[in-house]
């Protein structure tokens, strides 16, 4: 018993003060929200498109770069290869959006971050959001960094958000993975088992758009073609702070931040 108390003293109180205090410090090498400099990007140049593993970097209507952050794996190869340094990855973790098209980042444009769920739904759910997580081809990185939100540092439950075992007890599902054909039925059945109204959250590049497996015949390029999605959280995997940011925007905690 005494050893447990001594360990308790050693381990201290570790729950982050975020969002009332500062966010936990991220690595200075974190590849978060990218910026595109329209003045530097040369029309007709395709260096970034050539090195991009998933076709996230593409030419817009004017021939200049548009980045699809839904497809982006945040590998940073484009920024490394660009002869004009027109692409840079900032350490800004805020990436979650409400609509798939909001992830198309044009040069100089702002990212339209996720908005809160509607008032009717919010009053229905109260201050509680219970989620059933479904991994449908996820590689265990998105799963791990979703799960980490329930550890003492992040303490997701203090926001009224938690993961539950049964879809019957859930207000929605949080999906990871590109949706393999072999998990399609189980995913749809889990969704059906959640009582309406229900929320669908796509966490990670795979669930948003197929990730590194995009266009493999074995996968469905994410969940958007199968289910109505309320929140898209890009990243491979997204930083836990990015996932939390998305969840808190969805429940209206971060509306003005």
């Amino acid at each position: 018993m005494i050893s447990i108390l001594l360990a308790r003293l050693h381990q201290k109180h570790r729950t982050f003060r975020y969002p009332d205090g500062p966010a936990p410090k991220v690595s200075d090498r974190l590849r978060g929200r990218p910026t595109l400099d329209p003045a530097r990007c040369l029309p007709g140049c395709s260096v970034c498109r050539d090195v991009c593993p998933t076709g996230a970097a593409a030419a817009g209507p004017d021939g200049r770069l548009v980045m699809d952050l839904g497809r982006c794996l945040f590998c940073g190869r484009c920024a490394e290869a660009c002869p004009q340094q027109a692409i840079a990855f900032t350490t800004d973790h805020r990436l979650a959006v409400s609509r798939r098209e909001d992830l198309l980042l044009a040069a100089g444009a702002q990212l339209q971050l996720a908005t809160a769920m509607g008032n009717r739904l919010r009053s229905f759910l109260g201050r509680s959001l219970r989620l059933r997580q479904v991994s449908a081809g996820g590689c265990n990185a998105c799963e791990a960094d979703s799960n980490v939100l329930t550890t003492v540092g992040w303490d997701l439950q203090r926001f009224g958000i938690d993961f539950v075992a049964s879809p019957r007890h859930a207000d929605g599902i949080l999906v990871t993975g590109p949706v393999t054909e072999n998990m399609r039925t189980a995913l749809l059945k889990t969704y059906e088992a959640v009582p309406a109204p229900k929320i669908v959250i796509a966490v990670g590049s795979c669930a948003v758009a197929g990730g590194p497996f995009v266009d493999h015949p074995e996968v469905h390029n994410g969940i958007a073609a199968l289910l109505p999605v309320d929140l898209f959280v890009p990243g491979c995997p997204p930083h836990p702070l990015t996932i939390l940011d998305g969840l808190l925007r969805l429940v209206g905690v971060l509306a003005d931040r």
Partner: peptide, 24 residues
């Protein structure tokens, strides 16, 4: 249930995506 067809896609590589498939 998690079969994503990785090995089949690696044939003909290496290309821009190969390392990402291996990492995941």
């Amino acid at each position: 249930y998690q079969h994503r067809g990785i090995e089949r896609r690696l044939v003909g590589g290496p290309d821009a995506r190969t390392l990402h498939l291996v990492e995941t």
